[in-house]
Every structure is written in structure tokens, then in C-alpha cells.
Computed example of a mutant assay.
Amino acid sequence: MTGDELNLRVDALTTQTRRFKALIGDFFRLEFKRVRPKWGPYEVVIQIERCENSPVHDVDNVAKAVLDALTGVVFHDDSQVERLLVTKVMGERPRISVTARPMASAKVSEIA
């Protein structure tokens, strides 16, 4: 956590979206006990890294699992997310990187 911005990297992927959601949710409940969810609009950026032999994930399923895990920790409800960017790239190892921040501190970027 940096101010109101959350940066998270999960160095693992599982083919079971429910398991992934539970793992992230448990992590937040244990590590961020004193963090209170906030109101207002949010931007969430998710990058899914995969290797040649790693399982293929649907970006919408990963996004749903991440947003569900952040609900009640970062924001009160995932309906507060007004901007969501999910990308899937080839990388060094299977992992997911997540940035969640209030829209007031989010920089607007144009996608060409």
C-alpha cells in the first residue's frame, strides 16, 4: 500500500478461479486487518503474465476473481470500479500484478 494505492503481485496462477479468489481474499484478511475499505470511484489494472506451458486464463474470470477479493478490503463494492484494464502477456513466470487506486489519483491514459 502506498497511500490509497494498492500494488499487488501474485507469483502463481491456478486453473481454478475459485481457489485463486480464496487465496487472494485470505491474504488480504490476514495482512491488511487494519485497512478499511473506502468509498468512491476506483481504477483497477490487472496484468496476467504467463509462460509458454502455463495454463491459459480467460481475462474476465481473472478480473472477476480479483475484484471479488478486493471487495471489502480496498473498496466496499466492485461497482465502485469505473475503469478496469486487464492484459495478458508472455512473461518470465506465471503471475498476476494488480494495481487498485481511487480515480482522483489515477492518471488518464489513452489507449491507441
Rank of each mutant, 00 (worst) to 15 (best):
M1D: 07
M1N: 12
M1Q: 04
T2W: 09
T2D: 12
D4S: 12
E5A: 10
E5T: 09
L6T: 08
N7I: 11
L8N: 08
L8E: 06
R9W: 14
D11F: 07
D11P: 08
L13Q: 08
Q16W: 12
Q16A: 15
T17W: 10
T17C: 07
T17P: 01
R18P: 00
R18I: 01
R19Y: 12
F20G: 01
F20N: 02
A22T: 05
A22R: 02
A22P: 01
L23G: 02
L23Y: 06
I24S: 03
I24K: 04
F27E: 06
F27K: 03
R29Q: 09
R29M: 09
K33L: 05
K33S: 06
R34N: 10
R34D: 10
R36W: 05
R36G: 03
P37D: 09
K38N: 04
K38H: 09
K38S: 13
K38P: 03
G40L: 10
Y42H: 13
Y42I: 14
E43N: 12
E43A: 13
I46H: 03
Q47D: 08
R50D: 15
R50L: 11
R50S: 12
R50P: 03
R50W: 09
E52M: 05
E52P: 01
N53Y: 14
N53P: 04
S54M: 00
S54E: 00
S54L: 00
P55T: 08
V56C: 01
V56Q: 00
D58Q: 11
D58K: 11
V59M: 15
V59P: 07
D60S: 08
N61D: 13
A63H: 04
A63Q: 04
A63F: 01
V66A: 02
L67F: 08
L67G: 02
D68L: 13
L70K: 03
T71I: 02
V74H: 01
F75Y: 12
H76Y: 14
H76C: 14
H76E: 14
D77N: 15
Q80C: 10
Q80E: 08
E82C: 02
R83D: 11
L85I: 04
L85E: 02
V86N: 09
T87K: 15
K88A: 14
K88G: 11
V89R: 15
V89M: 15
M90E: 03
M90Q: 07
G91M: 15
E92W: 09
P94Q: 05
P94C: 09
R95G: 06
R95Y: 04
I96V: 00
I96E: 00
S97P: 00
V98A: 02
V98N: 02
V98W: 01
T99V: 14
T99P: 07
A100K: 00
R101K: 09
R101L: 06
R101W: 01
M103Y: 12
M103G: 04
M103Q: 09
V108G: 06
V108A: 14
V108Y: 14
S109H: 13
S109E: 14
S109Q: 07
E110C: 10
E110R: 11
I111R: 14
I111Q: 10
A112R: 12
